[in-house]
Design a protein around this nucleic acid. Structure first.
Lengths: 210, 210
DNA sequence: CTTTGTTAGTGCTATAATTAACATATAATT
DNA sequence: AATTATATGTTAATTATAGCACTAACAAAG
C-alpha cells in the first residue's frame, strides 16, 4: 500500500505486454520468459523484469512465467479486472471509428452513452447506443456511473465538453481534440493528437539535419 | 550539422508549442515569452527555453519571441516547411476519420492515396481520393513519392501492410493497429494504440493501490 | 547616459529511467 | 545427491531528462 512512483512508460509497456500475452495464450503456450516477451514486443529482457518488479514477483526463477497467470496479474494491475463505462462525446467520423473499435470492448471498455451537438445526429443509433443531445450529458453520465469520458469533438468545443464531463463525475478523460485542456489535478487526462504523432515522424525523417 | 541527441519529449512539446503559437498568432499577438507559452501549454518556462535551445536562439533577451518567427522556426525544425505525401491503408471507420481530419491538411500532410482490401470499398471516393485495391499499393505509392504510410487496418493484416509500404519506399509509418510491428531500423515507426491510452488512464484512476 | 525591470540562454544539480551485472532459486540430469 | 543450466528478482551503474538559479542582453524611463 505504499505510494512509490511508477513511470508512465512502464504502464504503457505493461499494457503492451498484456496484449502480447493474450496472443501467446491463444497459441496455447503455457510458459514464457522475460526474454520471450522482450523479443515479442521489442524491448530488453531487463526492462520486462524491472517493469514487473514494481508490482511483485510473478515468475519462478530458472523457469519463467505462467502465461495465463502473468496476463491476469497485469490486467489486474492496469485496473482491468472489471468493465469500465465510457461516455463518448462527438459522433463524427472519429467517434464512429472509436465505437466500432473492437479493442475497447475486448479489454473491458464499454461505451454506454454517446453525445453530439448536431441535431441531425441526435437520435441516430451507433451500434446499439442512441446518440443523445449534449444537453443531457451531465444527467445521463451521472446516472450511468460513467468513469471515463472520450472527447472526439473539434478543438473549439473541447474545453466546454471537458468541463461538463467533470461535472458529471468522470474521473478520467481521453482527449482527441488538438488543444491543451485545463482540468483539476485529480482528473486523469491523456491527449491523443494525431498531427503531433505525424510530426514526430517527420522530425525524425529529417533529423540528419541536427 | 552535429548529431546531438534530442529527447522525443522535446519534439512532442515543440509540436504543441507550434500549435499554440498558431492560435496566438491568429489572435494578432506579435510578441510572446517563454512564460506565456508555458502557461498556454502547461509546462514550465525553463522547459520551453530548454527545448528551443537545442536548435538555436530564437528570442531576444528582455523582450521575448516574435510569434510568427518562432512559429516558422519550429515548423521548419519539425520538417513542416513543405507538404508531405501520405498513403493511407484501410478505409474503415478509422481511415475515414483520418481522411476527414482537418488537422492533417492544415499542418501539411496530404493524403494522396488510399488502399483497402475490401472489394466493396475499392472504387469509392473519400473526399477527392479514390480507394484503390491493396494490390496496387507498391506501384502507386512508389510513383506518387509517398514518404509516410498510415496503417489503419486490423491487427492481423498490419505487418503485411507495413512490409508493402516499406517496399514501396515510405520512410515513416504511423500504425494504429494494436500489434508490434517489425520494421528495419531506418524506418521511422510510431504506434498509436487506443486501448493502451485508456489503460494508462484506468491504471492511474486506481493507482492509490500502490 | 544611467538605472531598473524584464526575459532569453545556459551551466549545474537533482531526479528519473534504462541498462547491465549479480546473486538466488528452480528443475533436470548424471 | 550433487552438479549444471536457466531465468528470475534485485542491486548497482549509467544514461537521460527535467528543474533551478544565475548571467547576459535588451528596452524603457528618468
Amino acid at each position: 500500500m505504499k505510494t512509490l512512483k511508477i513511470p508512465e512508460a512502464t504502464i504503457i509497456r505493461l499494457s503492451v505486454y498484456s496484449r502480447h500475452l493474450t496472443d501467446v495464450d491463444r497459441k496455447g503456450i503455457i510458459t514464457t520468459s522475460s526474454g520471450d516477451i522482450a523479443d515479442g514486443v521489442g524491448v530488453s529482457p531487463a526492462q520486462v523484469r524491472k517493469d514487473l518488479a514494481y508490482f511483485g514477483e510473478f515468475g519462478t526463477r530458472g523457469v519463467g512465467y505462467n502465461v495465463k497467470d502473468l496476463r491476469q496479474h497485469i490486467l489486474r494491475i492496469l485496473g482491468l479486472s472489471a468493465d469500465w463505462n465510457v461516455t463518448l462525446v462527438g459522433a463524427g467520423n472519429l467517434g464512429l471509428a472509436l465505437c466500432s473499435y473492437k479493442g475497447f470492448r475486448e479489454r473491458g471498455f464499454i461505451i454506454t452513452s454517446i453525445f453530439d451537438s448536431d441535431p441531425s445526429k441526435v437520435g441516430t443509433m451507433i451500434g446499439n447506443v442512441k446518440v443523445l443531445p449534449i444537453e443531457q450529458l451531465e444527467e445521463v453520465a451521472q446516472q450511468s456511473q460513467t468513469q471515463i469520458g472520450i472527447i472526439a469533438v473539434p478543438a473549439a468545443g473541447a474545453q466546454e465538453i471537458a468541463d461538463k464531463l467533470i461535472k458529471a463525475g468522470v474521473q478520467a478523460i481521453l482527449n482527441f481534440a488538438p488543444v491543451v485542456l485545463n482540468v483539476p489535478p485529480q482528473i486523469e487526462l491523456r491527449n491523443v493528437d494525431l498531427a503531433v504523432n505525424l510530426e514526430v515522424l517527420t522530425f525524425n525523417v529529417g533529423a540528419q539535419r541536427f
